[in-house]
Amino acid sequence: FAQRETHSLIGEQNIFGRDKAKNDIVKMISEAAESNSNTLSVLPLIGMGGVGKTALAKLVFNDKSTKDKFDKMLWASVSNAFDLKHIVNIIIQSDSGESNNQLTLEALTKKLHELLRDKRYLLVLDDISNDNVNWEELINLLPSGRSGCMILITTRLSKIASELKTLEPYEVPKLPHEECGKIFVRYAFRGEKAKDRELLKIGESIVQKCDGLPLAARTLGSLLFRKDISMWQEVKENNLLSTGKGKDDILSVLKLSYDALPSDLKTCFSWLSTFPKDYDIFRELIIMYWMAMGLLNPASRTKEAIRVGEKYFNELAGRSLFQAMFLIMMAASHIAKCIALFMI
């Protein structure tokens, strides 16, 4: 659950309670960009897992006044980065879309300097979680470009934030109960106009246990969508929701969502752990994989197995067990042809 790849696209209608934080950060970035300083500014966003650092960074990144300040905008997801060469390649790829794995660090650095020469740029380094990387050396590798260049980083690691900062780190606050409740209701009822009052009352207690963490509210809301009152009551009384125990305790909420899966879905989801970290999930590939592993009732016909696979995939996606989905939706007949080739 901890490792994931992020992107800069955002659905603002799904983010609640971050207007003030966004405006505060946009103002800090604007002031730094207009300072005419040749020093590369670094602003860390810090906070516990699940508090919404990435979502807030996306709001800032996509804000019009932010975009107006910079010649180039780059978003690099570095949660699974392991060395400088890998990170520099990710940064370049975020602009060109092309990987340069074959190049040396020296060649990559020259390419990066060419990309950013004489430009005022904003670079987001999202989810710095590996403290074995020399992040300070990375900052030194980056060109200063035009005056007012900025790096925005998101991390749970206060040590890294304090080492890299040139501006005072911004600690992302937990959401107020009311805003957290809006997220929970959005996912628990999915646009239903008539909301059961008894479920709403139980939901109030569940939201309280989310401890202001948007990810917890979203995950539990998705878990309870179209579930009966006994399931809501079970979640309300579950001790796993004590998110205040520690900075990584959000995992207990995600585990609760996993534990609530039916046995067949749990098996299918568990098999996804065989894929590499940050692997792009394509729906038809996953369905073929489940079929090859005999997880979709081997006795059933291909078309029926595909329908079951699609149902399983959509159920897992609906429970927020996948991060962001860029899915290639293929017609069943085309999937069947792919499967035939795959099995040959």
Rank of each mutant, 00 (worst) to 15 (best):
V207H: 00
V207C: 03
Q208C: 05
K209T: 03
C210T: 11
D211A: 15
G212F: 04
P214C: 12
L215H: 08
A216Y: 07
A217K: 01
A217W: 04
A217F: 06
A217M: 06
A217D: 09
G221F: 13
G221H: 09
G221T: 11
S222P: 15
L224E: 11
L224F: 07
R226F: 00
R226G: 00
R226P: 00
K227S: 04
D228F: 02
I229P: 02
I229R: 04
S230M: 11
S230Y: 10
M231K: 15
M231H: 09
Q233N: 12
Q233K: 13
Q233S: 15
E234N: 13
V235W: 01
V235I: 15
K236N: 08
K236S: 11
E237L: 12
N238M: 03
N238E: 10
N239Y: 07
L240H: 12
L240E: 13
L240I: 02
L241H: 12
S242F: 03
S242I: 05
S242W: 08
S242L: 12
S242E: 14
T243Q: 09
G244C: 09
G244P: 03
G244N: 15
G246V: 02
G246M: 01
K247G: 00
K247C: 11
D248L: 07
D248R: 07
D248N: 07
D249I: 01
I250K: 01
